[in-house]
Design a protein around this nucleic acid. Structure first.
Length: 262
DNA sequence: AAGTGTTCCAACCGCCTTTAG
DNA sequence: CCTAAAGGCGGTTGGAACACT
């Protein structure tokens, strides 16, 4: 039997409960968005920021934009400096050695990008996060698949279908379904969060912070979904899309946990 | 050459942690 | 010790660049 475990992160409590942040509850915005510039930085802004920091340093990011004559939020200035303007930054593509280091560090730290970045001088957490999400994640998947193929051969498994190629098929099918309802699909729908659904190669649970766990079991001509209840509790699946999406699928295929499922 | 789809990354958002008063 | 402000971090996204038809 091939199993695909899908770990779904619950959205943050405040988002989930729609807690109002503007009425004195929660935090106020860091700055008045209507009075600051957003979007790409111009050369002139870069020069202003660099010159100011080289002269005066950056003791207080909040007051810095005003002092430097920039119409930017302090956070935005900090980010621009750290991720782009800092003189000690390395430019250019990641070397294979750097990529290997990232993969190794990710195994021990997980998505702690700043921790990983601290081991790679001249690289930023944002940069590492991007390179992970765009290249290394895929590469790791391919490696896992190759490993699984090897091990399935070694065990002389009756099923030659690898877990991951099956996972890829399902992901592909879901992408197709997503496209088919794309006319009404929007970026905030739950479907768009397919990227948040992480399919891992091993049934061993190594992501302790996952909230919900679903398991797809491959049966001949049938894809059965078993929901595993984590805390002996009832899970509410937020249905945010009226069309065929993963939540609908989960809802339709929902069944009590059946004993004996691997 | 034009239209469409995909990839990539800089920047933003919002939450959590740290720090100062 | 408490509170609010600031800093730091990780997830997400908009849009430019590139690839494909």
């Amino acid at each position: 039997m091939c199993c695909i475990y899908i770990y779904i992160r619950r959205r943050s409590y405040k988002k989930e409960r729609n807690i109002d942040q503007s009425m004195g509850k929660g935090r106020a915005a860091c700055c008045d968005k209507s009075k600051v510039k957003t979007g790409a930085w111009s050369c002139e802004e870069d020069v202003r920021l660099t010159t100011f920091i080289q002269k005066h340093g950056h003791q207080n990011w909040r007051s810095l934009p005003k002092q430097a004559g920039l119409l930017r939020c302090g956070k935005s200035c900090r980010l621009r400096w750290i991720n782009y303007l800092r003189p000690d930054l390395k430019r250019g593509n990641f070397t294979p050695q750097e990529e290997d280091t990232i993969i190794k560090l990710h195994q021990s730290f997980g998505n702690k990008w700043s921790k990983i970045a601290s081991h790679l001088p001249g690289r930023t957490d944002n940069e590492i996060k991007n390179v992970w999400n765009t290249h290394l994640k895929k590469r790791r998947l391919i490696h896992s698949e190759a490993k699984l193929d090897d091990s399935s051969r070694a065990y002389n498994s009756p099923s030659s279908t690898s877990v991951l190629s099956h996972a890829n098929t399902i992901i592909h099918e879901k992408e197709e379904a997503k496209r088919s309802c794309s006319s009404s699909y929007n970026a905030s729908s739950s479907l768009s969060n397919l990227s948040q659904v992480e399919v891992i190669s091993s049934p061993i649970i190594n992501h302790v912070d996952m909230d919900w766990i679903f398991q797809f079991n491959e049966e001949p001509n049938n894809l059965e979904l078993t929901r595993i209840l984590q805390d002996d509790g009832i899970i509410e699946i937020p249905l945010e899309c009226d069309h065929v999406d993963i939540w609908d699928m989960l809802d339709i295929m929902d069944s009590p946990l059946q004993p004996g499922h691997e």
